[in-house]
Structure formats: C-alpha cells, structure tokens
C-alpha cells in the first residue's frame, strides 16, 4: 500500500536515498575496497608470497587457536547464563544482565591492562607465576584471557532475550512428561535457541579473530609466537610492508564479509531477527 499522505515526494525521497548511500559508500564501502586493492597492488604472486611468510602463517595459526578456545568457552557460558537468568527468578537479575554487558563498555586497551595488572611481572599473581614458571602475559594464555573478556557478552546477549521470550512453558511441559534436565535441555531448549546461538557465535568469532586493542596490550608482539593476525597487520604496516599488511588484512576483511553474509542469511532464511539494539 502506498503511504501517499505520510511520505515524501519522489524527489525528496531520491535525494535522501542518494545522500545516505553516498555516506555509506564513502565511510563503509571505500575502506573495504581499498584493503583488497592494496593487497593485490603488486599482483597475485606478491599476495601469495605475503600470506606464505612463516610469521604470517604463525599469526594465522595463533588467531585460529585463540578463537577455537575462546568462542566455545563463551558459548557454554552464554547458554548457561541465559538459562539461569530466564529460568529462575532471583534478586539482582537486571544487575546481572548489565554486568554481562560490561565488557562492551570497557576500552579494549583497559581490558588488556587489567590482565597485565593481574598476571604481569608486577601484577598480583606475577611473582607466584614466575616462581612456577608459568607465563600468562606476553604469552598465549593472556591472549586467550583478553579475548574471552572482550567477547564475553556476545552469545549471552543474543540468547537471553530469545529465552525470555520463549518462557518456561516448553521446558515445564517436557519435565511434566518425565524428561530429565539434560534431555529437556538437549531436545527442547537447544532447538529453540539454535539460530540465536549461531548468530551469537558468529559475532563472537568475528570479534575474537579481529580483536586488536586488548590483545595488543597482553601479547608482547613476539613474532611467530604471540602475534595474532591483527597484530601482525600492525607490525607489517609499521615496517612499510604495505602489500604484506594489506594481504593479511584482506584475509581478515574476507572473514568479516563471510560473517556478514552468514549473519544476513540467518536473518533472511530462518527469520531469526535481531530486533535488539546494537552491541
């Protein structure tokens, strides 16, 4: 149905659309395009060569490893936390929900700093860790911890509203039919939240692989050992190896594109719609 009385003239409409798209092209599309253009500026062989460098490959491996640890951790926590929040009534519930969102409002650099203060050489547990010869800061465990912190809310915040909306009826019905807690979870709860879970995992993974600030503070930038892909991009860029920097960056940009495509597919195909406001 046309909304003749409550819409703008075709000219005004076209101008608004034009201005909006121009803004998006300038601020979103162009940066993305330039990544790929720069990556291939010296041709395909140089690109392949840049990706094939041992340090680049080590960075890719580390990034995959960190994501492989931190995403499942947050996934399990997200489901358990959502379950606890929506299935039980207790005081301070809304406070708990706010606390889960907390990492989103903390600067990534501060997020990194807190782990340095805890586990660094001068940190609370520093002397003890040194005595036992465990390295957390400037090592992989620190990177994982920082990543878990910054991606902490992604899964939980997708599932909490979903579970709250679905209420407890289905579970209570299942329990009344004699299902055990685990059966109920596996056959009733999980299928209900699977698209939301996938959505949260997708965003969590994108952030885990792309996190820069927090990881930068705890990693120590040791090439081949504690360099993740985003950190490697920075190092190469600062060494004026632009092709190398943009080659690795283009891999991360491709990851972002895949994430967006999958996310859109989830929204369109399965009708899973993220109605809540942004992260």
């Amino acid at each position: 149905m046309t909304r003749a009385a409550s819409s703008e003239s075709p000219v005004a409409r076209r101008i608004l659309i034009g201005v909006g798209l121009l803004f998006l092209a300038l601020f979103l599309a162009l940066p993305l395009v330039v990544v790929f253009v720069q990556a291939f500026a010296k041709g395909w062989p140089m690109f392949v060569d840049a990706i094939g460098q041992p340090d680049a490959r080590a960075a890719i491996r580390l990034t995959l490893l960190v994501a492989a640890i931190s995403v499942p951790l947050n996934c399990v926590f997200g489901v358990v936390a959502s379950w606890a929040i929506t299935k039980f009534d207790f005081r301070g519930k809304s406070l708990l929900i706010s606390l889960i969102d907390l990492p989103f409002s903390v600067s990534p650099v501060v997020a990194g700093l807190i782990f340095v203060l805890m586990f660094g050489a001068q940190g609370w547990f520093g002397p003890w860790l040194i005595a036992h010869n465990w390295k957390v800061i400037f090592a992989v465990p620190g990177i994982v911890l920082a990543t878990v912190f910054v991606t902490f809310p992604f899964v939980a915040r997708e599932i909490i509203p979903l579970m709250a909306e679905q209420g407890r009826d289905d579970e209570e019905a299942a329990v009344s039919l004699g299902a055990s807690g685990w059966q109920t979870f596996w056959h009733v709860t999980l299928p209900n939240i699977r698209w939301g879970l996938l959505y949260g995992v997708l965003l969590c993974n994108a952030r885990a692989m792309g996190e820069f600030g927090a990881v930068s503070v705890v990693s120590g930038h040791i090439r081949g050992l504690t360099n993740t892909m985003p950190l490697h991009v920075e190092i190469l860029y600062n060494e004026y190896d632009f092709v190398g920097a943009f080659a690795v960056a283009s891999l991360l940009a491709s990851l972002a594109l895949v994430t967006l495509v999958l996310k859109s597919l989830l929204e369109w195909r399965f009708g899973y719609h993220q109605a809540r406001s942004a992260h």
Partner: peptide
C-alpha cells in the same frame, strides 16, 4: 537488503584492518 547487511561491516571488520584502510584512503 545488501545495504542493510553492509551497515554492520564496522562490527565485523577487525579494527586494525579498518585503521590501515582508512589511513591509506
């Protein structure tokens, strides 16, 4: 639909990538 999906790019694109892309622009 394409534009709608593209709006989320800054959420998905690692910040370091955005940084070097913007500076080279």
């Amino acid at each position: 639909k394409f534009v709608d999906a593209a709006v989320d790019l800054p959420f998905a694109l690692p910040t370091a990538v955005a940084g070097i892309a913007l500076v080279s622009l």
